[in-house]
């Protein structure tokens, strides 16, 4: 899979990237801020987007909002959230297919993504 990783913390980004590349053998593109996340998401070359909820300049929720306003379909978005119970995640739940809570287990990351994607497909079918 071709994965867009939007994460401002370089340490977490490195770990997520290593995990995705070494465990799941996916291709990862890493961006560190909301603007880059938005422009990359619109290119349509990714299979899934991992979006950090809190980023400088533009939060994950803002990115979601702007993409929605443009009305352009994107790859499924998964929130990476250190605060998964806050209202913001609830608010953007319809735009995303799910969220992964931080701290995540890097060895489980790939299977978590696959689970979320397959349940999203099931939901759509059902």
């Amino acid at each position: 899979m071709n994965i867009l990783l939007c994460e401002d913390d370089p340490n977490i980004a490195t770990i997520a990237r290593l995990a995705l590349e070494h465990v799941g053998h996916h291709q990862v593109t890493w961006v560190a801020d909301g603007n880059a996340a938005k422009s990359n998401a619109m290119t349509g070359q990714f299979d899934v987007i991992l979006l950090d909820e809190m980023m400088p300049h533009k939060s994950g929720a803002d990115v979601c909002n702007e993409i929605r306003q443009l009305g352009q379909p994107t790859a499924p978005i998964i929130f990476l959230s250190a605060n998964p119970q806050t209202a913001r995640v609830e608010e953007f739940r319809p735009m995303t297919v799910g969220y992964i809570a931080k701290p995540f287990d890097p060895l489980q990351l790939c299977s978590q993504i696959e689970n979320i994607l397959s349940s999203a497909v099931n939901n759509k079918a059902g």
Binding site: I12, I15, H22, A82, K102, F104, D105, P106
Partner: peptide
């Protein structure tokens, strides 16, 4: 506090788990 506590823990746990798994 949630954000600031969980962010470093994500890195620590992630590094340890990747190292411990032998993948690296």
């Amino acid at each position: 506090a949630s954000h600031e506590l969980r962010t470093p823990l994500t890195s620590i746990k992630g590094s340890l788990a990747l190292l411990n798994s032998g993948i690296m």
